Simulated scan of single mutants.
Amino acid sequence: MKKILCMVTLIILSGCASLIEKASIEEQEDGTFTLAEVNETEWSGSDLSMKLIKEAESFCHERGQTFKRIELKHKNVGRFNYTNAQLIFKCN
């Protein structure tokens, strides 16, 4: 019984151990794009924001356009050791 309890506990803890929501680019109705990510491996919202900006620049470059930042928000949640960031941008 102890072995089963230990196994279940380890499985639950390993599921909680990594909170990474992969960023995906979504086009909005007004022609802008939104890119957001939640990540516990980045300790700074600023670092995560820079990562999103680079991804958005690459996205626009692949379309033969230039990147234009509209809005950038990030938040550090030290209590739970994760950060999140949201980028709104256009490709011109």
Rank of each mutant, 00 (worst) to 15 (best):
M1P: 05
M1A: 13
K2T: 09
K2H: 05
K3C: 07
K3Y: 14
I4K: 13
I4H: 08
I4N: 14
I4Y: 12
L5Q: 13
L5S: 13
L5E: 14
C6I: 14
C6K: 09
M7E: 11
V8D: 00
V8M: 13
T9G: 07
T9V: 06
T9C: 14
T9S: 10
L10I: 15
I11K: 01
I12A: 13
S14Q: 10
S14F: 09
S14W: 06
S14R: 03
G15H: 08
G15N: 12
G15S: 15
G15F: 10
C16S: 11
A17V: 05
A17C: 13
S18Y: 13
E21T: 10
A23Y: 00
S24T: 09
I25H: 01
E26A: 09
E29Y: 08
D30S: 13
D30R: 10
T34M: 05
T34F: 02
T34L: 14
L35P: 00
A36K: 12
A36L: 02
A36H: 05
E37A: 07
V38P: 00
E40L: 01
T41W: 11
T41M: 10
E42Y: 15
W43G: 09
G45A: 10
G45I: 02
S46E: 14
D47M: 10
D47H: 06
L48G: 04
S49D: 03
S49H: 02
M50S: 11
M50F: 09
M50Q: 10
M50P: 00
K51F: 01
K51Q: 09
L52W: 00
I53P: 00
K54L: 12
K54S: 14
K54T: 03
E57Q: 08
E57H: 02
S58V: 09
S58C: 05
F59L: 04
C60V: 04
C60D: 05
E62K: 12
E62L: 06
G64E: 07
G64D: 05
T66H: 12
F67T: 03
R69W: 02
R69E: 14
E71V: 08
L72E: 02
K73T: 14
H74T: 01
H74Y: 15
N76L: 02
V77R: 04
V77A: 03
G78D: 11
R79V: 10
R79L: 11
N81P: 00
N81G: 03
N81I: 03
Y82C: 04
N84H: 06
N84S: 08
N84T: 05
A85N: 00
A85V: 03
Q86S: 12
I88Y: 00
F89S: 09
K90C: 04
C91L: 04
C91P: 06
C91G: 08
N92P: 11
N92D: 10
